[in-house]
């Protein structure tokens, strides 16, 4: 096998994002059964499996989870960091919610510019055909656990642009949406209510595992 082939899919270097997420197309697997020749991600998987199996068998996992669950859940609830992404009108109201009059930061909402640091993707406008693959990439770049808020009519179902040739009929046609906030545009108070609704959802649906599987 030549070195060129091991380097794998040339598309990856062109930055086509999500299409290369399948490791089988990126690089050929080393021979199985020999853990000394594992690639780094395979090694991590192997370690994860080993630790998880031991913790599960001995019952340590349940104990640790029971102790740490409230702490992790509390941490998740009060640090929902949204992505600093402005699409349309609602983006200004998102800014106003972060401004001094409404001050969403008191609920732990801090806007970050890198999807790697974020928990929430706020879709605050119509998703056009040209934008859809980019938004999907942004969503995939965010680390788990992550949530999506569809803010405003455009993100819920196309809004005033429902009969357009370039607007997708809602964000939930291509990504999972957790909270829908109606309004055109959404007022800052409604966005704050949306964050509180998400907190409630996290409290009920997201236990916060120490060892998640």
């Amino acid at each position: 096998m030549s070195r060129q082939q091991v380097r794998g899919n040339p598309r990856m270097r062109k930055g086509l994002g999500s299409r290369t997420s399948d490791p089988a197309t990126m690089m050929e697997d080393p021979p199985s059964g020999d853990w000394l020749t594992l690639r780094s991600d395979q090694f991590l998987n192997w370690v994860d499996d080993a630790v998880y199996n031991i913790a599960e068998k001995t019952g340590i996992r349940d104990v640790v989870n029971r102790v740490t669950r409230p702490i992790f859940n509390w941490g998740l609830r009060y640090s929902p960091w949204p992505l600093h992404l402005g699409i349309m009108c609602c983006a200004l109201e998102m800014g106003a919610a972060g401004g001094p009059d409404h001050d969403s930061e008191r609920m732990g909402v801090v806007y970050r510019s890198s999807p790697r640091q974020c928990d929430i993707l706020i879709v605050n406008g119509p998703v056009c055909e040209k934008l859809r693959p980019k938004l999907k990439t942004l969503y995939e770049q965010m680390a788990d656990p992550k949530w999506v808020i569809a803010m405003g009519e455009c993100a819920i179902g196309g809004g005033p642009y429902w009969d357009s040739y370039s607007v997708v009929a809602g964000a939930d046609t291509f990504m999972p949406v957790d909270v829908y906030i109606p309004g055109c545009p959404v007022r800052p108070e409604a966005l704050m209510h949306g964050f509180l609704t998400l907190q409630k959802k996290i409290r009920e649906k997201e236990p916060g595992y120490f060892l998640r599987r």
Binding site: P126, D163, S164, V167
Partner: peptide, 11 residues
Amino acid sequence: LGYLHRSVEKI
């Protein structure tokens, strides 16, 4: 450009 092309003129 074009990530927010909503085709206002057409609709």
